[in-house]
Design a protein around this nucleic acid. Structure first.
Lengths: 153, 153
DNA sequence: TCTTGACCTCAAGCTTGCTTGAGGTTTTAC
DNA sequence: GTAAAACCTCAAGCAAGCTTGAGGTCAAGA
C-alpha cells in the first residue's frame, strides 16, 4: 500500500547529494569528515556513501556553529553520541542544552560589555585606570578575533 | 609650584613601555602599527617613540575588539579621527555609539538564536525543513568561526 | 668600555574553517 | 562505447591576528 519506494528511501547519499541537501560545499563535507565530525563508508569505487542521519548531524553542526562553538568542540559533543546511531531528540536535547548555556554566557558577557559601553559613551574615562571598560578582568575573553593563546587561564 | 616633572610628563614612550602599560605584547604593537592602527615617530637610532595618546588609542582598540569589530574596521574608524590628535571624549562618543549599535545587533541575533534553541530543545524538529533553526535566512551570518566568503550578500 | 637588555626588520609559523587546484578515477547518461 | 559529470587525494592557499625566530643594532648601567 505504501507509495514510498523503499529503494529510494534507504538509498545512501553521495557527497554531492549531501552537499545539495545541506547547503554545504562538497569540500566542507570532506573537511568535516577529515575532522571526525561525520563518517562515511566507501563504495566499490572508493566513493563516499552516507546514511541519511548525516543530514541531521550536519544540521546539528550548523546550529552549533551559529552559536559560536568551534568545530573541535562540536566534534567532541557529537562523539558523546553512540556511534553510528541517528541522533534522536534526547541526544539533541542534551547537546542543545549545553550549547544554550554557552550561548547564554556569551550573551551575558556581550550585554555587560554593551552596558558598560553605554555608560561610558562620552565620559572620556577611557583614559582612567578605573574605567570599567579598561578593566575587563571580570569577563572571560571574548570569542571574537584575537589571540586565543593569551586567553586568561 | 607644580610637583610634576615636565620631562617625565611629556616623555615619549618606547614600545616596551607601551606594551607594559597596555598589557599588549610588543609584537602586537608592531603589528597594529603595520596595520595602520597606530603611529610612531622614530628616534635617531630608528627606535619607535610614541606620544602618550597611543595609550588611549590602544584602549579604544581593545574595547572595540571585545565587541567583535575586526581590526580593519577599527582602523577605518580610527582614521576618521583627525590625524595625530589625542582622541577626546567627543571622538570617543562617536566611535562608541557606532560600536554599541553593532553590539546591539550581535546581541539581538544571538538572543534570537538562543530563543529558537530553547524552543527547539527536545522537539526533534531539526529533521524538519520548517524548523526555525534550520532556516536561519532571516539572520545575518554569525560572527563566529565559519566561512566569511559564504556570507549572504 | 663592555655587557646586557631592549629594539630593529623581515620571514615564517600558528589556528580555525574552509576553498582551490592539479592530476587522476568512477559513474552516469546518451 | 564514450564523453561529461561527479568523485578521489593530496597540497597549497586565504583571512585574521598575532607570535616566534633569526640575524643584527642601540642604549643604559657598572
Amino acid at each position: 500500500m505504501s507509495r514510498i519506494d523503499p529503494s529510494r528511501l534507504h538509498k545512501e547519499l553521495s557527497v554531492g547529494e549531501v552537499a545539495k541537501r545541506s547547503g554545504l560545499a562538497v569540500s566542507a563535507i570532506h573537511f568535516y569528515e577529515a575532522k571526525g565530525l561525520i563518517k562515511s563508508r566507501r563504495n566499490a569505487g572508493n566513493q563516499r556513501r552516507y546514511t541519511r542521519d548525516v543530514l541531521r548531524r550536519v544540521a546539528i553542526i550548523k546550529v552549533a556553529q551559529r552559536t559560536g562553538i568551534p568545530l573541535a568542540s562540536i566534534r567532541d559533543a557529537l562523539q558523546t553520541l553512540p556511534d553510528e546511531r541517528t541522533p534522536n531528540s534526547d541526544d539533541w536535547r542534551q547537546l542543545s542544552a549545553q550549547w544554550k548555556a554557552d550561548l547564554d554566557d556569551r550573551i551575558a558577557r556581550l550585554t555587560k560589555l554593551r552596558d558598560q559601553l553605554s555608560g561610558c559613551i562620552g565620559c572620556g574615562c577611557l583614559s582612567l585606570d578605573d574605567c570599567p571598560l579598561r578593566n575587563p578582568w571580570d569577563e572571560l575573553s571574548e570569542e571574537g578575533p584575537g589571540p586565543r593563546l593569551l586567553d586568561p587561564e
